[in-house]
Write a protein that binds this DNA or RNA. Structure first.
Length: 416
RNA sequence: GUGGUCGUAGCUCAGCUGGUUAGAGCGUCAGGUUGUGGCCCUGAAGGCCGGGGGUUCAAGUCCCCUCGAUCACCCCA
């Protein structure tokens, strides 16, 4: 056992998984750019206050913040998500509206790790600031939906709800609080604690004991203002227009309490665990203001990279890309020839692997085979003397000897 | 943070009710005569049995603690 190992909730991503990650973010950036979003790369840590604006009763803020004092006495925190950083950046740079950004990177949450829930976890996502247009909501939601579909995922369900505007939400919380209080005798003791802290979250309880009470709870729909209702109706209409199937669930409240109006979640039905939410998002009208900026509406989503890949595993889609080495150079004369040939070929754009440490030809050939190279170039004593190279196809085993000077020209026939 | 389960070679796992030098498959490396891969054969390297303490004549096998993973709650991506 090695003396040092990765800290709890963190891990190394090695090849070929790392290649899969690269492919994943490449797919996402293509999709986001195609929809008019541009990348933002915010710092991984910020002043703790930036994240505290996410909500005083939010667990992400109160219990899970990865914060520390730096050497300058600043209280900073590793970002638990990107949205707050994006809003802070918006206030700092004041871009023209609407501001459409996408991101990809790690977030940190100090919580107990388990499969699909890590302390350092990667997300990709988009944020759109400066527009109230419900059609934008629909487009954003569809962007995530289509991305999942593009990976090959089929067992994904979109759940959507509206939390109304600020006042609506407050009013509903009170209605819910009095309902739950009236039934507190039947609630689990965990839910009683949640009730005191944040009544909305009781709706998320997964305990059997709470099921009946949660099912009978008043719906937030009756508390929505006319404006919020109309907005929500148009969002759903937009989803229909875009051909995105959805399920309205008026119990979907989500954990960050900055959400207003539209809120949604992508759930993988192929994942047989509690960590089955592979993405989520919503409107956060008000967050920019909380960070000291002008009143600015915003909507976005974040997709969990780790969890989405777990869902891909479960569905058997989006496998790691296969290795694509063009050429492998075998040299049994010491290595000088392999070094020169590999360098020359890489200079003209080939991907070239080779062996080191002067291994036997048999050993080098085995490596060539494993590298996935389509063609192996062999230089032995006689080739070195005559300034030639053997070009061997690793597919059918045919080979020919050619002049070293004509190597680059010859290979153009194999790779065009 | 709370509770349950698990922790043996790089990987996947065997090791019966505690008892001689801890095993297999895969992987790695080296060979299988005259310079060449994929199949096959042979051999080798690699494990203080997660770590610490205890019970016992004797522990990978039992007990305690600890670390880690995992499952549920919680939370959320």
């Amino acid at each position: 056992m090695a003396e040092f190992q990765t800290s709890p909730g963190t891990r190394d991503i090695l090849h070929p998984d790392s290649a899969r990650w690269r492919a994943f973010t490449a797919r996402f950036s293509d999709a986001a750019e195609a929809a008019g979003f541009h990348q933002i790369i915010p710092p991984m840590f910020e002043d703790l206050g930036v994240f505290q604006r996410l909500g005083e009763v939010t667990d992400v803020v109160t219990k899970e913040m990865y914060d520390f004092m730096d050497k300058g006495g600043r209280h900073v925190a590793l970002r638990p998500e990107h949205t707050a950083s994006v809003c802070r950046a918006f206030v700092q740079h004041r871009p023209t509206l609407p501001w459409l950004v996408w991101y990809a990177g790690p977030n940190f949450r100090y919580e107990k790790a388990q499969h699909g829930r890590y302390r350092q976890f990667d997300q990709v996502g988009v944020e759109a600031l400066g527009s109230n247009d419900p059609w934008l909501d629909a487009e954003v939601i569809a962007l995530g939906w289509n991305f999942f579909a593009g990976l090959g995922l089929r067992d994904v369900k979109l759940v959507i709800n509206s939390l109304g505007d600020d006042g609506d939400r407050e009013r509903y919380v009170e209605i819910l609080r009095s309902y739950l209080s009236a039934n507190s005798g039947d609630l689990s003791k965990e839910s009683l604690e949640t009730l005191a802290r944040n009544p909305l979250r009781v709706l998320d309880s997964k305990r059997d004991q709470d099921a009946a009470i949660v099912a009978g709870a008043p719906s937030i729909r009756e508390s929505l203002s006319d404006a919020a209702k109309e907005h929500f109706a148009t969002v759903l209409e937009g989803l229909d227009t875009l051909g995105v199937p959805f399920t309205v669930n008026d119990r979907l409240v989500r954990g960050l309490d900055y959400y207003r109006r539209t809120t949604f979640e992508y759930v993988s039905t192929a994942l047989d665990s509690a960590q089955n939410a592979i993405g989520g998002g919503g409107r956060y009208d008000g967050l920019v203001e909380d960070l000291g900026g002008p009143a600015t509406p915003g909507i976005g989503f974040a997709l969990g990279l780790d969890r989405t890949l777990l869902a891909c595993d479960a569905e058997g889609v989006f496998a790691a890309p296969t290795d694509s080495t063009d050429l492998f150079v075998v040299d049994t004369t010491g290595g000088a020839n392999a070094t020169a040939i590999a360098a020359a070929l890489r200079n003209v754009g080939h991907s070239v692997a080779r062996a080191y440490d002067s291994r036997s030809m048999k050993s080098q050939m085995k490596q060539a085979d494993k590298s996935g190279a389509k063609v192996t170039l062999i230089v032995g004593e006689s080739e070195a003397e005559t300034n030639t190279v053997i070009v061997r196809s690793m597919v059918d085993g045919t080979q020919r000897t050619i002049a070293r000077d004509s190597l680059i020209e010859e290979l153009k026939k194999e790779f065009k």
